[in-house]
Each structure stands twice: as structure tokens, then as C-alpha cells.
């Protein structure tokens, strides 16, 4: 009897997987979703389970470095983080025929490529940032802070919080932090590069050249997003680093040793000078909004990073306790 024979599909799979690794052939591409720093992102479907997924193709340049360290670190972090508000890395697949010259012309195109397989999310937050209802905003903010709090408890800084890196699914019910390409583990007295975080969401300490920073950098970005939700336009849309600082100081006041001890020692402090003596007037632009929301924004956008509210304290703020 031939009944004992395994279906052809199963046999193929076994052939591809010498070390238990699945290949990109397990997925059917649906469409290209976007293009990140490290390559294209596709929507795809798992041929076996029918599950939808987002495949991020890792650009492998033939440089001297070999497998990119940024990707190695992103994979390490994503494997460590397991939370409902953080994107889940389901698996990593390779394209078939990694040997030289193997396969036909089709194979040749993605020979040796690596794909990170993420759970599929409907769209990013950028799409809804300028038209969300107050109750949706509260819902998104709570999830954003929960995900971020989890990162910070696990000593991980995200370092690139912005609309495009916050993904939404479940009919707008679920928010997850994504793109940990710039994230890194931190220690209390580590020193890092200050060239992180998209300009509009970059905190003053980074703009002033600090290389020893902490969780508060992410909170500043969250504050900017929160404000953008209410205002329905970016809070600090600077085009250059210089202009970014001016826009921040215009609303948050000019930093000095009194309101931010140590600020004058930051590398770029001497290059800035107040155009007009500015006082903090951040609250003035939010005069029509829920006062609890404005209170929280006010505490997220404090110039001095050590006084900025933590993700944990933000979740305990009156804003999240009061019902709409």
C-alpha cells in the first residue's frame, strides 16, 4: 500500500531544513508594506498554517563585517522581550540555496538572504496620529507606556520611538512597539552614541550632545507623540538640530543650572544662546484639553532628564485613572 507515504510537501520541508531552520519558501508573499533602514518589509502568509506575517528582509551587504551586528543585537533583544505591547519575532528564515551558484535565476535573486518573521499588524500609528478620539488616545498611550515600561525594567532603551515604529492591530485595539534596530541594553554609567531618535522626537539632552543618558530619552519621545495626538500636528517639527533646540526652548523655557543642574557641562551647551529670555509656556498651547492629559505631557516634557516622569509613574498618573 502507498498509504504510508508522506505528502510531498512534508518531504520538501525536510529537505530544506538541515538544522531545523525553515526557509522563506514556507511563505507566500502578498505585498510590499514598506522599506526600513535594513531592507524591505513584506506582508506574507504562512503556507502551512495560513497565518499572516510581516517579513523583514535583512540587507546583507558584502562588507567586511560579515553578518551585521545591528541585526544580531536586534534579534538578541527581541528574543529577550516578551510582552503583549512589544512586537513578537516569530522566527527567522533563510532563503533556499545558500550555496554558490545553486538554483535557477529565481533563486539567485534571494540567495543567502535572511528574513525576520514578525506577527502581522494592520498599520502604524502615524496613520491615526492626527485623527484619534480622546478615548482612543488614552488607550494607545497606556499600551505604549506599558510596553516601554517593560523595556525599561529589562534594561532596554528603545531609542527610536515615533509613529512609524508603533504598530496597530485588532481594529485599532492593540498597540505594539516595533523596530528595535536602534535599541540597546543599558547600564547605569554606560556611554552611548547620541545620534539616535528621529529629530522631531529627540530629547534636549541628546541634542546637546550627551552620551550618558537613560530611560528618560524614550519618555521625551512619548511626550512628543502624546502632544501630537492632542494637537493633531507635530509638536516640534524642526528641520535641523539647531532649529529643533530652538523650538523646544521656545515652549519649555531655556535650560540653566537652576532648572537643570549639570546642563552647562554638556558638550554643545555653549553653542546655544537664548534668542529671547524664554519662560516655560508649554501648557499655554493646550488650553482646551483635558487637564489630566496636559499635566502628564507637562511631566514628560521636562528639560532635565532626571526630573522627567518614568514610564511606571506615568501609568499611575491621574490621566489613566479617570474615566472618560
Amino acid at each position: 500500500m502507498d498509504g504510508e507515504e508522506a505528502p510531498p510537501g512534508a518531504l520538501n520541508l525536510a529537505d530544506y531544513a538541515p538544522a531545523g531552520a525553515r526557509t522563506v519558501d514556507c511563505f507566500r508573499r502578498i505585498r510590499k508594506i514598506g522599506e526600513g533602514t535594513y531592507g524591505e518589509v513584506f506582508e506574507a502568509m504562512d503556507i502551512i498554517t495560513g497565518e499572516r506575517a510581516a517579513l523583514k528582509k535583512i540587507k546583507l551587504d558584502d562588507g567586511k563585517e560579515g553578518f551585521p551586528r545591528q541585526i544580531l543585537r536586534e534579534i538578541k533583544l527581541l528574543k529577550k522581550l516578551d510582552h503583549e505591547n512589544i512586537i513578537r519575532l516569530k522566527e527567522i528564515v533563510v532563503s533556499p540555496g545558500t550555496a554558490h551558484g545553486a538554483g535557477g535565476s529565481d533563486d539567485y535573486m534571494y540567495r543567502g538572504d535572511i528574513y525576520m518573521v514578525f506577527e502581522y499588524m494592520d498599520h502604524d500609528l502615524k496613520k491615526v496620529l492626527h485623527h484619534s478620539t480622546p478615548s482612543q488616545v488614552k488607550y494607545y498611550m497606556e499600551q505604549l507606556l506599558k510596553g516601554l515600561h517593560y523595556c525599561h525594567v529589562n534594561n532596554v532603551l528603545h531609542r527610536d520611538i515615533k509613529g512609524a515604529n508603533l504598530l496597530i492591530s485588532g481594529g485599532g485595539k492593540l498597540l505594539k512597539l516595533a523596530d528595535f534596530g536602534l535599541a540597546r541594553p543599558f547600564t547605569r554609567d554606560g556611554s552611548f552614541t547620541n545620534h539616535v531618535i528621529t529629530l522631531w522626537y529627540r530629547p534636549p539632552e541628546l541634542l546637546l550632545g550627551a552620551t550618558n543618558y537613560a530611560e528618560a530619552v524614550d519618555i521625551w519621545s512619548v511626550g512628543c507623540i502624546f502632544a501630537e495626538f492632542l494637537l493633531r500636528k507635530p509638536l516640534f517639527p524642526g528641520r535641523t538640530e539647531q532649529e529643533q533646540l530652538s523650538k523646544i526652548f521656545e515652549l519649555c523655557g531655556f535650560p540653566n543650572e537652576e532648572n537643570w543642574p549639570g546642563v552647562s557641562k554638556l558638550p554643545l551647551y555653549k553653542t546655544i544662546r537664548p534668542t529671547t529670555p524664554t519662560k516655560r509656556r508649554l501648557r499655554d498651547i493646550f488650553h482646551n484639553f483635558d487637564s489630566h492629559a496636559v499635566d502628564l505631557i507637562d511631566r514628560m516634557l521636562i528639560l532635565n532628564p532626571t526630573e522627567r516622569i518614568s514610564a511606571h509613574d506615568a501609568l499611575c498618573a491621574a490621566y489613566f485613572i479617570t474615566k472618560m
Binding site: A19, G20, A21, L60, D62, G63, K64, G66, F67, L72, I75, K76, K79, K80, I92, V94, T98, G112, I114
Partner: peptide, 21 residues
């Protein structure tokens, strides 16, 4: 050469199921 090492790195990564920590 760099290309050969790169290839081997990927073989090691997949064999270890990407668990590098």
C-alpha cells in the same frame, strides 16, 4: 575571505536557532 566567514556565520546562527544570548 570575508564572504566565506559570512556564510559560516549564518550556518552557525541557524544551527543555534538564533539563540545567541
Amino acid at each position: 575571505d570575508a564572504e566565506t566567514i559570512h556564510r559560516m556565520e549564518i550556518i552557525v546562527l541557524t544551527t543555534l536557532k538564533w539563540r545567541m544570548q
